[in-house]
Design a protein around this nucleic acid. Structure first.
Lengths: 245, 245
DNA sequence: TATGCCGCGGTTGTCAGACAATCTGTTTCA
DNA sequence: TGAAACAGATTGTCTGACAACCGCGGCATA
């Protein structure tokens, strides 16, 4: 409200000015979640920047998962769901060099251990049966066929079993990249799938048996094994499907 | 390489075209970490978009922690350090409504438990002594004084003790927001600081005693207690210092 | 020779204006 | 009554221009 904006704006760039302005409007509650923003030209006047700069600031907040905008309608504050605020990760993880990607595996190990333990504690008998069924279908599937898809579904079921959207939103982009390597499709490493299949069976069994600590240990071990495979194989840059970018 | 870019560009927006183009250059290794990008005008020609659109795409990747740009010099691919790729979170976390912020506490509980356990296993005797000393200084500090600063330093020491930059980069923005509430400075809740101080002493003692599981349990409990305080007090929007936006 | 200053070219940062594409609500006509 | 056409507003995109800034080479000077 004060007129001292100019003093701050002198040392802050125009885009920064606009970004801070938008952040303040959201942080103070002037703009609540789901609420529609003023039009770009109005915001330009308010912040004293050009439309280009304002749009760059909006794009920053869009990537951060705070804003969404639709043509013709306007921009609005997002619900800031866990999925949305982790959208930045979905963009970065596919771009990480292998070494950086492997740095994420300690986190992955802890979180996958956690969700497995939670699944063992919370899953219904029906869900557990379905999990075991999926483990068998996955074991029977051919590596080049839909095994990747089944593997994703199997692990998603466990992740969802923990009923924590934040952790799920963190794990999903990491797991998604791991899928892109398709190490089982290389003939030399086809035997590794048996080890993986066996781990899936054991984890499912521990969950059905309502044994959280065994499920945690097995899941963490499964992640550790996957990491060691990637470290040894050191696959080159993945071929990206259009949707992963 | 092919000339079918136009076919894809027809249904993708200009900014999306540019973003995908940049992502491909990085993912395929054409642009390695630390390498400098071509100038904006060159990239505009390459992708067939205007400079405005290209700049919006670059800003997206900058927020995601993939690019950095300096005036006069040019843009370059970042090292994608854990800190950088979590920069999006640093922007979002201060903007979350309280309910969304509280959703992060399960993750925080797991990770703070983990770092405390790791600290107990890895910390040197000297670091342990320093940790206990800091717990005492923090307990002796006045809430309105530099207690917040000491609290941050104490927990940072534990986090660093786990020697995992990814987890540290995840925890820091979350902890930073918690600090902004300054619940101990409200007279009604001043007594809570004693509970907190006692927890700090116990955690430090468990770490010095090289008892990872006790350290984990106490740290997780500390987080749970903090969450319950925030749930009960339900403080309003925080007053942001200039640097937190 | 060594050193500090200056200006040049290139790059990013910012702005203004214009037009296209899209959506929403209203109006109009069959 | 219903559907199509219209009008207004908003975002998406492009163009051109200029300012701010950086790095480098040349030049004058001690």
């Amino acid at each position: 409200m004060h007129a001292d904006d100019s003093a701050d704006a002198d040392r802050a760039s125009a885009v920064e000015t606009a970004r801070r302005g938008l952040c303040q409007m959201i942080a103070t509650g002037e703009l609540a979640a789901g609420q529609r923003l003023a039009s770009e030209v109005e915001l330009c006047e308010r912040f004293g920047v050009s439309r280009s700069s304002l749009r760059e600031a909006q794009k920053m907040l869009t990537v951060a998962g705070v804003l969404t905008s639709r043509p013709g309608t306007g921009s609005s504050v997002s619900q800031m769901s866990p999925r949305e605020i982790m959208s930045g990760l979905e963009m970065v993880v596919p771009l990480l060099p292998l070494d950086r990607f492997l740095e994420l595996f300690t986190l992955r190990e802890i979180l996958e251990g956690h969700v497995a333990a939670q699944a063992a504690a919370k899953m219904t008998a029906a869900e557990g049966a379905r999990l075991q069924e999926m483990a068998e279908r996955l074991a029977a599937a051919d590596p080049s066929d839909n095994a990747q898809r089944l593997d994703a579904d199997y692990h998603d079921l466990i992740i969802d079993g923990a009923q924590d959207e934040v952790i799920a939103a963190l794990l999903h982009p990491i797991r998604k990249r791991g899928r892109d390597y398709r190490i089982f499709e290389v003939e030399t490493h086809a035997a590794l799938k048996d080890v993986s299949d066996q781990a899936h069976r054991q984890i499912a069994a521990a969950i059905v048996a309502r044994d959280p600590e065994s499920a945690r240990f097995l899941a963490m071990q499964h992640v550790r094994v996957t990491r060691s495979w990637l470290e040894q194989i050191r696959p080159g840059p993945v071929l990206f499907s259009a949707d992963s970018l």
